[in-house]
Structures are given as C-alpha cells and as structure tokens.
Design a protein around this nucleic acid. Structure first.
Lengths: 204, 204
DNA sequence: CAGATAGGTGAACGAACGTTTACCATATAA
DNA sequence: TTATATGGTAAACGTTCGTTCACCTATCTG
C-alpha cells in the first residue's frame, strides 16, 4: 500500500503547517490545501496515513494529529526528520532505503532552515584535528556547492568517508585531518555526497 | 507585571502538553490542569501571557496557541528553550539574567530528555584535542554528578571556562586538552557549573 | 471611606470542527 | 460480466471550543 500524489501532498502540508504555525491543521484547512471539497476525503486519507504509521490521531479532538518519523516518535513544530546513514551498500545511492539506519528529529534552527540534510555517523579518527571524533554525527547538506577546503562526505567504492576537499588548479583530492592518515587520491570513480555543515556530539 | 503561581503553572502545563501530545491544549483542558472552574479565567491568563510575549495566539481557532522563547520564535513539540550564556559577570551565578545572551530551541532528543541544560559558547582553543573548537556550543548539564576526567564548565573568578576535571586522591584541578595550555590549579574560589554532555558545531 | 484592579464563577451563544451516512465514478480483479 | 476496492462529493449532526457578558470577592490605593 502506497501513498498517491494527493496523499503525499497532504502529509507534506501537515508537516509545513506544523513547522510554520506550531499546531496541526483542521480538516477544512487540509481539504483546501490539497484541493478536495469534502472533509470526508480528508478523513479517509488520514486513516490511510495512520495505518501506514505516518501519523497518530487523537480521536474527536480538534487538530488531533501527531506527525511521526519512521522511528515512531513524533516530529514537533520546528523540527524535521533527518535520516541517519550507516554503512553504504556498494553502488547504491547514499540515501537509498537500505543505507538508512534510523531517523532523528532535528530542529530547523540547527540547519539554517534546510530540510534536505542527512546525518552520517563518523567512524574512525581521520578528522580529529578538525574537531570531528569517532562516533560524532555530522550534518550533511547534499545540494550545496562544495568549495576548496570544505569538509565533505565522499563516496569511494561504496564507502562513505568524511574528509577535507582539496581542489588546486583542478587537481582534486581528499585530505585527512590527522597526520597518521594519508591523503586520498582516488583511482576509481568517486563522488561527493554533500558538504558537512554541522557536527553533533553526545557525551556519555 | 509578573506571573503569579497559577499563571506560571499554566505556562508550564502548555509546555508539557505540547511536548507530550504534540499540539496545544484546549481551554477546558487548561482549566482542569491549573485548577480553575471557568474558561474565562484561562482567557484572562492567556491574555496576560500574550502581553508578556510568552505566547502567541491565533484567534477563534481551536488550540490556537504558540509557545515563544525569549527570542520570539516559537518552541515546537519535543523542543525546549535553552539559554546561551555569554560573558559571565564577576560574582554572579552563571545563569543570572545578565549573563544570558540569547535562547535557542533544542530538541529533547539531543539532551537525553533533560530540560535543565544551558549552552555555553566556547572561546579559544584550549580543548581542541578533545574535539571542542573555538565557537562551538557546548551543552551543559548543571545537576549531574561530575566525575574524574569529565569535561566540565568551571567558574573561576567569574570567568566560565571549559576544561577536563581531574580528581586524583582528592587533588582536584583542571586540565586543558591542548599542549600549549597549562593545567589550572586555581588558588581562588572556584566552582563547577556543570558537566558538558554535548557539543554542537555549525560550519559556515 | 470610595474606587480601582486582579482573579475568579457561571452561563449562554455561535462558530469551528470531527464524524458519519448515503451516494457516485472509475479502475481493477475474478 | 459482475464484484470489489479506491477516491471522491454532499449534507446533516452533535460536540467541542473560544468568546463574551454579568456578576462576585478579595486586595490594594488614594
């Protein structure tokens, strides 16, 4: 069972309404937003979203809708669900379902209001001199321009790695921020999955 | 103009309801929660909260309440407002009004559901080998037990500083994580303001 | 003392809001 | 072809919910 276009639009509308107004919309508002004329249409769509575990409802109460992320905990206003990428299966795009370990809610204030970021859990100490340690979560913005000396997430042979991007006169390579690691001049195909725009560390 | 006990309780109730149920409460729910029998009493309290800039309302709509932090942006479900401490005025407690630069909303998921944390903006590079750089925000938990080798925020002569806490056989001092800095054996009175439980960095 | 102010009760009103039922159109499966 | 699921309209219903008004009671002020 999957969402059709209008149902996806409804879910999206609930998200933005929650983010922008601080509380969920009413049936009439939703009907207007997705372009249907009957509140019953909304009722049916909501039931579907509920069955699929995307929302949770409080019956018979106004605006009684909770938005859930795929972990089942709910996404409050001013937040959005960001995927946490684990091991990247060779050849697959980094954001493929199979690579997503879990979802966490982030406040949009932490990402300059971007909602298209993902999160990568850092393994190893190759960036320790840049203040990125083993176990840290890096926030990655995939659609942002990457410049010389930015910290990036690169995909090399289906392996996601955090490094500093160096581009000198068109010579492009990756630099570790730890003297014990060598620079990487990939021979095989590689791509940049995004720019690191934030770091989150949980101590203990 | 200040809040009395019941009004404070109302504000607190709105906060927890928003955190727990994902949307604001109705008048009746609020009346029951703070122990008044009339919805009009709630109306008057809400007006006061509104005048004081603590909430924002959408008139004539069910559950039309937004919770604001002291910066005027609203606090969504699953979030709470944490104070960002700047320069600490000598002799004042670290969380005194005058020391608070601004407020930011944090998701409770980042603080293990603790709501009593505050944030300190790090100055200098004395903790760089612990992955804490100049400009980083550290999340500080003031009521948590501090143990040997924890990273802490210490108050020395009215100066807030982030260091590693060392306690060997009762000999207590502070250690920088940067060879260019010496250990600190404070001679004057000093206190520990809290334990560092998280780090947030915004790149760019 | 009279008067203002803050905080509350209680009831009535009307609009907002979720729910339900009957009915229709279209596509898909048996 | 006949069922059956899907997605929608339309209307009616009954609460829920915010608003407002009249009135009460302390407490403080001049």
């Amino acid at each position: 069972m999957e969402l059709n276009k209008r149902q996806t639009k409804l879910l999206e509308y609930i998200k933005t309404r929650l983010a922008e107004s601080g509380f969920p919309p009413t049936f009439s508002e939703m009907a207007k937003a997705v372009g249907v004329k009957s509140k019953n249409a909304i009722e049916k769509m909501l039931r579907k979203l509920e069955v699929l575990g995307m929302i949770e409802r409080e019956k018979a109460s106004a605006r009684g809708i909770r938005l859930l992320n795929r972990e089942g905990d709910f996404i409050g206003a001013g937040q959005f669900a960001a995927p946490v990428v684990g091991a990247v299966a060779a050849g697959s795009p980094i954001l493929a379902e199979e690579n997503i370990e879990t979802w966490v809610n982030l406040p949009t204030t932490l990402t300059h209001n971007r909602r298209d970021v993902f999160i990568l859990k850092v393994r190893g100490t190759s960036m320790k001199d840049a203040g990125i340690l083993d176990g840290d979560l890096v926030i990655v913005s995939p659609r942002q321009e990457v410049r010389h000396r930015d910290i990036v997430v690169a995909l090399i042979e289906g392996e996601a790695t955090v490094k500093r991007y160096i581009n000198i006169d068109g010579r492009k390579y990756l630099k570790a921020e730890n003297p014990e690691y060598k620079n990487i001049h990939p021979k095989s195909e590689w791509t940049i999955a995004g720019k690191v725009v934030g770091v989150i560390r949980n101590i203990e």
